[in-house]
């Protein structure tokens, strides 16, 4: 009963988000802000799958985003794929990188986080290496100017956001989600409940990387010109982690609220005076780690209000 209700509420919220982002460009003309907001919401839901449910903090999450952007761009440049298919290639590219990184899941806690960070940095230095100029253009960046289409890519981004939300809804209100939460709680107990821990967590990892890769692919399409430093920027990992922590891990709504509040805040003061923004989100992280480790939604949970 609880699950059915959750799924219905969750799908309702997804619908609401879709409608909002379809209509918002009519009344608010900063579509690049709206695009980035959707982007961060999708990334936050993607990171939520692996961090919120399974407890692995992917500090190098941006690696998947960058891999997606580059896979999509290379598919367009070398294989002349249509952009829509290229976005999918972005998702698949990141997914494959995710498979390569699966051994990292054997690590736990901070070990995993650091190793994942190192993995994404390694990826960055490989892509940006001048020796690979013929393939990746090295540090000089990618230009996809002739397929630039901010209108269509906006709606593709929206579909990816919807996809990420639906994925989270079905994880949150299913036995699979329960299995992931069990892995997060205690891997030994989870395997003694009969859960194939390596398999289930790899599936979550794959889903999470796929969503980041799709987002990277559509980002490449939307901006059309980018550099390795933009799509492998550690700042992206950091933002997404903080957004998810702020909103509340393991929920559908938490990552959305976190992205909405903090990304708007970033847009408000972060672009003009980034250091004040950095200072305030640094302080925010400290406060949350010390006092509200489960995010603001946990305050409602404590009062008995269940949020999907």
């Amino acid at each position: 009963m609880y699950r059915k209700k959750g799924i219905i509420y969750g799908l309702g919220i997804t619908l609401l988000v879709i409608v909002l982002f379809i209509f918002l460009p009519n009344i608010y003309n900063n579509t690049s802000f709206l695009f980035n907001l959707m982007l961060y919401m999708a990334l936050a839901e993607g990171l939520n799958i692996i961090y919120g449910f399974t407890g692995y903090l992917p500090f190098g999450y941006v690696g998947f985003f960058g891999a997606g952007a580059y896979s999509a761009a290379l598919a367009i440049l070398f294989l002349h794929f249509p952009p829509l298919i290229a976005v999918l290639v972005g998702g698949i590219g990141a997914f494959l990188i995710g498979i390569i990184f699966i051994p990292l899941l054997k690590l736990s806690g901070a070990y995993f986080a650091i190793a994942n960070l190192a993995a994404s940095q390694a990826l960055y230095y490989i892509v940006a290496n001048p020796n690979l100029e013929k393939i990746t253009q090295g540090p000089y960046g990618i230009s996809l100017a002739n397929i630039y289409n901010p209108q269509v890519s906006y709606y593709v981004m929206l579909s990816i956001l919807a996809f990420s939300m639906v994925t989270v809804i079905f994880i949150r209100f299913s036995d699979y989600g329960l299995a992931l939460l069990s892995i997060k709680e205690d891997r030994v107990s989870a395997s003694l409940a009969g859960i194939n821990v390596p398999r289930e967590r790899s599936i979550a990892w794959g889903l999470s990387s796929f969503i980041a890769g799709l987002s990277g692919g559509v980002y490449a399409w939307y901006v059309a010109v980018f550099y390795p430093t933009t799509v492998f920027s550690l700042e992206i990992s950091v933002f997404v982690i903080v957004f998810v922590l702020f909103g509340g891990i393991g929920t559908l709504v938490g990552p959305l609220i976190g992205s909405l509040v903090l990304y708007s805040f970033y847009n408000f003061i972060g672009i003009s005076t980034p250091q004040y923004f950095q200072l305030s989100y640094g302080l925010l992280i400290i406060i949350f780690a010390l006092f509200i480790p489960n995010g603001i939604l946990s305050i409602f949970e404590k009062r008995g209000i269940h949020v999907p």
């Binding site: 903090l57 950095q278 200072l279 640094g282 400290i286």
Partner: peptide, 30 residues
């Protein structure tokens, strides 16, 4: 001391010190 009393000190301290790192960096830039 507060971290050591939490449910998952290893992970929380990791996140907290990350916040500290952001604060230090921002202050130096200021």
């Amino acid at each position: 001391p507060k971290l050591l009393h939490s449910k998952d000190p290893e992970m929380l301290s990791f996140i907290l010190f990350f916040g500290v790192s952001q604060v230090i960096e921002a202050i130096i830039i200021l």
